[in-house]
Design a binder for these strands. Structure first.
Lengths: 254, 254
DNA sequence: ATCCTTATGCCAACACAGTTGACTCTACAT
DNA sequence: ATGTAGAGTCAACTGTGTTGGCATAAGGAT
């Protein structure tokens, strides 16, 4: 492999494509997101992306080491969008919840990309920035380091895991509408009531609840538990001591 | 597509392969698990599986509609192994926890297969059996139907999501030992302390905690919350009352 | 303004993927 | 004992990621 990928910052010459497009990491990633949305989570191919960009497929290898590398960059982009849509208020529980919801929403906004990307730890800058932010919130709130690390771990894994799961389900539903969505809605209804009495008894409730995400509810129980732990450590302060004067929107998402 | 996949039950003739193997759905799925373990989560190909079975790749299409169908069957196998390794005691919390851990363990026992499979809802028998079991435990324990359904939803999604996430991380670590595991351990340590003070301050704790799964801890907080809700409905029975401070909060979602 | 270097985009080709249609042959019902 | 059709095989198709070699124009140096 004689070829080297030139890092974006060191890129000097921008030579337009035969079809006129001027490439960049940014443009490629954004186009990839579009292709994913249009062609599904398995529809991102080097050739298709090349066509969408108006460039030869092999040109991509000047920007990314391979499709896998590009995939990681897409994940990083999703994480970046989550971070951008979030802003701190100083109240730990509010901030943590908003950040979690921002991550979840950012993934669900690009289900196909998320399904492809999620559960890949990239170690790229924006992802690390999220980690630093979470730890900062927890430690500033007064959690002792071991507790903070435990909560950080639970929080980030919970959020990523649900983002992946829900995005996967959403992507599947959007792609194979004929096959899978029908399966989803009809699966429970079609089951023989005598073999599956409990499912039969709750079929209506199931059909109503399953299309929604369980993430917010589970996140809240985690935050409840965290608040209880914090109260045990600092019985006096915790959630009560906010200035109460200023209340910037808790992270507009979507 | 003129070809039809004959369901396993209706299969009459078992003609040995040129190399002597007698095929079956079971054998194919088990061999696929072995191939996955040996060649990684992207290493399961029709040709490779054919070779491993001593059969022509196209023979697989007599048993499965395509590689995607085979993938679903593999997921179903994992779910079946989880269910087989579990047994009920009658105590709802014990049973639920054990079932969750069984699912999680079953996936982690085949990380590559899990990474490929997870977050695919199959709608196959064993998966539905798990759903029925969970709902049965909750309803028998005395949870009102709406609460039972809410908890079922949170429980199964939480378990599947973490199974997928943890299996993905494990598979990645086992496959690309040179690339990613090093990245994992060294990522946090290498960061400049002035840009990422919180990560730097907790680097040791992070390195100790991150290789483990957060699933058990999160599952327990969910079960805590469930127990509290049950106590509110049936104050007399089951678990002891919660430590008086918190009300379970009905967990509004979205 | 002109030249040189070389980064960057393009082309052709590789091995390998999933999948299918036509075929052979043998296991079984009769 | 025989006929049938279902299981396994073969060859071929399209499409995939990826690479080595090549042409060319962008941009710094003069």
């Amino acid at each position: 492999m004689a070829k080297q990928v030139v890092p974006e910052s060191a890129r000097r010459r921008r030579r337009p494509t035969q079809q006129g497009t001027v490439l960049s990491e940014r443009l490629i990633v954004h186009t990839a997101l579009r292709v994913l949305r249009e062609h599904g989570s398995t529809g991102l191919t080097a050739r298709r992306l090349g066509t969408a960009l108006g460039a030869d497929p092999s040109t991509l290898y000047r920007y990314f080491a391979g499709m896998d590398d590009l995939t990681r960059a897409i994940g990083e982009e999703l994480m970046g969008q989550a971070l951008d849509s979030w802003s701190a208020t100083g109240e730990w529980r509010t901030d943590l919840r908003a950040l979690g919801v921002a991550i979840h929403s950012s993934y669900l906004a690009h289900p196909q990309a998320a399904a492809l990307t999620a559960s890949r730890v990239t170690g790229r800058p924006r992802e690390i920035a999220v980690d630093e932010t979470i730890l900062g919130i927890l430690r500033t709130a007064g959690f002792p380091d071991p507790t903070a690390v435990r909560l950080y771990h639970a929080f980030i894994d919970l959020s990523l895991a649900f983002a992946a799961l829900d995005a996967g389900a959403l992507a599947l539903a959007e792609e194979a509408r004929a096959t899978d969505e029908e399966m989803w809605t009809s699966t429970y209804a079609r089951l023989p009531a005598d073999s599956y009495p409990h499912i039969a008894a709750t079929a209506r409730l199931l059909a109503a609840r399953m299309p929604h995400s369980a993430y917010p509810a589970v996140l809240d129980t985690l935050l409840d538990s965290a608040a209880a732990q914090l109260a045990a450590v600092r019985p006096t302060a915790t959630t009560r001591n906010r200035p109460a004067g200023r209340k910037p929107r808790p992270a507009g998402e979507r």
